[in-house]
Amino acid sequence: MSYFGDIYRGIKTLLTGMSVTGKYFLHSRKGAITQQYPDNRDTLKMFDRFRGEVVMPHNENNEHRCTGCQKCELACPNGSIEIIWDRQIDPESGKKKKMIDQHIYHLGMCTMCGLCIEACPTDAILWAQNFENSVYNRAYLTKVLNKPGSKLMPGVEE
């Protein structure tokens, strides 16, 4: 009879649901996803896919991977990236070559869409997991990503 069958199935599915939530309840100590932020500031590590701000990593010789191709500048939908570049003589080959002077990033205008990072052909810019981005003056939000005196890492352009 489907009347009692319905009752049986109803109770069974309710108990299934309760066992699922019961397991969550018992594992809540280990599995809690809440971060008690200011307390665990020293140990808190953001997950890898978190989009904090755009950075340009440099190696120990103060070399970066940006060729100044401006693809990120074109890809950015709201003009957060500005690249100041000129043609200089490359000291190794002696030829004139496009080089970046300053890679300017306006964090205040950035919507963290990530199009610049997808567009970069040499993986020169990456997401950082830093999330404490507040500053006292708006001007501090404009950042120069390449460090002073840095140059292109050899072998990136090949």
Partner: peptide, 10 residues
């Protein structure tokens, strides 16, 4: 508190 534990919160 119980609600929080059921939802893996604190």
């Amino acid at each position: 508190r119980v609600a929080a534990w059921f939802q893996l919160r604190i």
